[in-house]
Write a protein that binds this DNA or RNA. Structure first.
Lengths: 144, 144
DNA sequence: TTTTAATCAGACAAAAACATCTGATTTATA
DNA sequence: TATAAATCAGATGTTTTTGTCTGATTAAAA
């Protein structure tokens, strides 16, 4: 089966969007995020740790601890999260799995695929969490 | 790590392109394909079996047996191979992994992502094996 | 008719991704 | 100061994907 983003990356984006949507409320626990997004607490905790290490979000330990965005949501791009969790392979690796695929030794699909990937990269690097944070609450409603 | 096509799908496209590039030569063994593409014979054999079952390629059993395209290369689209091996999830599943994502209950990225996926679908459904078969030989040269 | 060389089918093995568990550490509050 | 509630770190378990192996079947050629 083909996939675009790993499960960890999907949930990482969901979680960051949820944190952005909770503006005004200082700190959110991993338990609340897990409950709202209907995903396992243990798994999202691991992902939140990775995002904290990448300084996309910040954590506060101890009682009343939890997570918050590390910067203004209009400064966090979708691309930041994708690179932090999945890395850059999707943008650089050969779509047909050939080794050393480049414009010098292109695979058959290199030219056509590059265009689509460039567009995808552009979108992810331009769109910010701020642009999406309101939409996530509506989606969460539909999960209930 | 994120991926687009599964490894089986990558190699499936490679193999079909190789068969297309060998026009005039009636039948090609899985061993030749494996040697040329520098991939394990056993693995590509399994993939060739799947492509045979989907009637994208045809097989001939027994001594001097092997594989050939099941139809004219300008009738085989990249999409046919992707659907046969990876299915349609990549075109229909939510990019953020939410359940039941649609234009009625869209995820935050639904609209932007749909555009990119539609373009990708269009490309894969329009481009034929015929358009790419010559390029694969040049790529194979670079593997040697 | 026997041998040889190929695909086919299904079981098996290894690696990666996904998910969970346990215990340590941190910090607010009673 | 003791307790409770949170993150953190690392080990462990499970599932999926990737890759391999074995034996059966098929068909060409000696």
């Amino acid at each position: 089966m083909a996939i675009i983003f790993s499960r960890k990356c999907e949930l990482g984006i969901q979680a960051v969007l949820y944190l952005a949507s909770a503006e005004g409320r200082d700190i959110i626990s991993s338990e609340e995020i897990a409950n709202e997004l209907k995903i396992p607490k243990e798994f999202i905790s691991k992902i939140l740790q990775e995002l904290t290490a990448s300084r996309i979000i910040a954590s506060k330990k101890g009682k009343m601890g939890g997570f918050s965005l590390a910067k203004n949501p209009n400064k966090i791009h979708l691309l930041d999260i994708v690179l932090a969790i999945d890395g850059s392979d999707i943008f650089s690796k050969c779509v047909l799995g050939f080794p050393h695929c480049s414009s010098e030794t292109p695979c058959p699909m290199h030219a056509t695929w590059s265009q689509l990937i460039d567009e995808t990269f552009k979108m992810l690097s331009e769109e910010t969490i701020d642009n999406y944070k309101n939409k996530v609450l509506r989606k969460i409603e539909s999960l209930k």
